[in-house]
């Protein structure tokens, strides 16, 4: 069974919000209608977004690190938002595991948004239905697009390749390998929702050297005067003459 998902690498995300912008652009232009925006340039701007980049500060000054954290629907394997929906508008697709909302069935009761611990769902204040990330379901299967572009808009926009899209159930896919080999993890594992989207942690490459790896213990040609007492014959001296 396929489970499409995103793997987001916090180690390379620079917090540029390009994924947010491209997500909004693609999803406000689709056949499902605009994603509402009220007072975009006014006093209290508000609107519906599927993806946000947040910024966290870890540690205490001066020992701090800034972590940019993109957040969208995690397409849980056991999504708590789906069983609570009274109309069946919220559903998880069998074939690829994408959690979707049928905008023609949704009654806008907001119960699914209460049932999502991640705050991934946002109501469209104009269409009065619940909306959420679709993993660009209207892009990824579009055969009119070149194959390289059949990816979610956020993935295409990312300048640092912090977002990778693929099937997390296929053990050999790029996303599965990344999760497995780079310590991919899920958000709020305590609720048993089993999010499909994974995050790769911040990583630092520390190389540790031991003293004997920097200083040569043996010195067959006596070129460098590392030895503490070169006058005493060493075992090398014995074997090399």
């Amino acid at each position: 069974m396929t489970q499409l998902a995103l793997v987001i690498d916090l180690n390379v995300c620079v917090g540029c919000h390009a994924c947010v912008t491209n997500c909004k652009e693609w999803n406000t232009s689709g056949s499902a209608g605009a994603l509402s925006d009220d007072n975009p340039y006014g006093k209290d701007p508000t609107g519906t977004f599927f993806n946000r980049v947040q910024t966290y500060e870890v540690g205490q000054f001066p020992k701090t690190e800034t972590v940019h954290f993109p957040k969208s629907c995690l397409h849980c394997e056991d999504p708590p938002c789906v069983p609570v929906c009274p109309t069946g508008a919220s559903y998880k697709r069998e074939e690829d595991g994408i959690v979707l909302v049928d905008y023609d069935k949704c009654i806008g009761c907001r119960y699914c948004s209460w049932a999502c611990p991640y705050g991934a769902r946002e109501i469209d204040e104009h269409q009065k239905v619940m909306k959420k990330c679709t993993l660009c379901v209207d892009r990824i299967y579009d055969e009119n697009l070149p194959e390289a572009e059949r990816q979610p808009a956020c993935v295409l926009a990312c300048p640092t390749t912090a977002r990778v899209f693929g099937d997390v159930h296929d053990p050999d896919s790029e996303v599965s390998v990344a999760i497995r080999e780079q310590g991919g993890y899920q958000l709020m594992p305590e609720w048993g929702t089993k999010p499909s989207n994974h995050y790769l942690p911040r990583r630092k490459n520390h190389v540790s050297y031991k003293k004997d790896e920097l200083e040569r213990v043996d010195n067959p040609l006596k070129k460098e005067d590392y030895q503490v007492d070169a006058s005493e014959p060493s075992l090398d001296d014995v074997t090399s003459w």
Binding site: H17, V20, N39, D44, P45, T46, G47, T48, F49, R52, V53, Q54, T55, Y56, E57, V58, T66, K71, S113, R121, E122, I123
Partner: peptide, 13 residues
């Protein structure tokens, strides 16, 4: 860990 920005300055749902 402290949040520094939620990603937007206006309101949302």
């Amino acid at each position: 860990i402290k949040q520094k920005a939620m990603g937007f300055m206006g309101g949302s749902m």
